[in-house]
Design a protein around this nucleic acid. Structure first.
Lengths: 201, 201
DNA sequence: CGTGTGCGCTACGCTACCGTTGCGTAGCGG
DNA sequence: CCGCTACGCAACGGTAGCGTAGCGCACACG
């Protein structure tokens, strides 16, 4: 970091070109070969950017990978239709679309595995999770305020019941996520579970 | 495989000793260092077994790793209390205990990541998932037969709603799984979602 | 007690990747 | 147009791990 980025960030077109080419190549390699396939030399070969140049921008392989992950993230705005179910379906569907994309479906498992050992990746991972989790919690809290959900709704549990199945399919069963109506069924099942009256204790 | 195993499997105590020492060391390294940390040389160093001996038993790193994974699996029998909820709680709790163990919690993400690229690991992974999934499906189908669940219950979806949150916590949020009552709450939420009457279409 | 066989050890050549250096060049910005 | 800066290139020594080979030893087995 430092010198180059701070002084000329987005200024010199040569810098911009190198940066984007490298990050793009890194993302590709990450998907195709997985984490161990992302060597500096492989990135250099694919991107057409010299190895030395890569080192000038990212002193560490980890920093490069983290930058690449950030580069492939894109924010989707939060919807507010007024109806809980519609909102949740939209959020869950958005999550499914994102995780179902080849990009994340192949890269996320590597990120998870790495986050268990490297603090830098752990931070990145938790940020990734938190961003997406927050959308769900926002919708839920709105619904509680409107009285569409019980006041004592366990937002954390509901969030888990919604996001869990989506990640489950991505990371565990490796089933496709583009199945029509999937998001709706997950939301229905989770919502009914929350609404049903249960005897406490 | 082949020669040694088929002829003297479990026979010569020297073989048995080497095999178990190597598999144990491999499992340890897998947890501590992750996938890339499992090099033949590292396994040799930790196990005290010579590198050449390791190659004699497992010609490939992949074969060694697969054997190590199989070695750390242990079957838990399926319960049948007569009550859906109790059965499901037991199964979910068992899953949570297993995945929450340091062993699997640290090794599973690596397995998932590897399964995306290597057919051998993909097979191992799907076998792992299928074994655990089958227990859930078994309980569900029993409950349907008894009329404790609707006949048109979507067993696959219910299974996903049950297992999803557990894996979600292990692989994504990295929250602890030993929270008391967690399994019960997940089962309740999922079951109520299945029992609630919904307007189809 | 012998024989066979599994094991340990040392050493080997080989490959891939690391991270750095020096230098010449090209292109951006003033 | 000129100076600065980012880039490309080639080469470097160093490291880690690979997979193999040969040999002597010790232990299991009959």
């Amino acid at each position: 970091m430092g010198d180059i980025d701070q002084r000329r960030h987005g200024c010199d077109p040569r810098v911009a070109r190198s940066r984007s080419a490298v990050l793009e190549a890194t993302g590709q390699l990450l998907c195709e070969e997985g984490f161990p396939g992302v060597t500096i030399e492989a990135v250099a070969a694919r991107s057409g950017v010299a190895k030395t140049t890569i080192y000038r921008h990212w002193p560490t392989r980890a920093e490069l990978l983290i930058a690449a992950f950030r580069h492939m993230s894109c924010d989707t705005p939060c919807v507010d239709t007024g109806d809980v179910r519609d909102d949740l379906v939209a959020v869950v569907q958005g999550l499914a679309d994102e995780l179902g994309s080849e990009r994340w479906a192949t890269a996320l498992p590597s990120l998870v595995a790495e986050a268990l050992r490297d603090p830098g990746f752990a931070e990145l991972h938790s940020a990734f999770v938190a961003e997406r989790r927050q959308k769900v919690l926002e919708v839920i809290s709105r619904a509680v305020e409107r009285g569409q959900l019980p006041a004592d709704t366990d937002a954390g549990l509901l969030g888990t019941m919604l996001a869990g199945p989506v990640f489950f399919r991505t990371l565990v069963t490796l089933e496709p996520l583009d199945e029509p109506g999937l998001a709706g069924r997950i939301v229905d099942a989770a919502l009914d579970g929350m609404r049903a009256s249960r005897v406490p204790g």
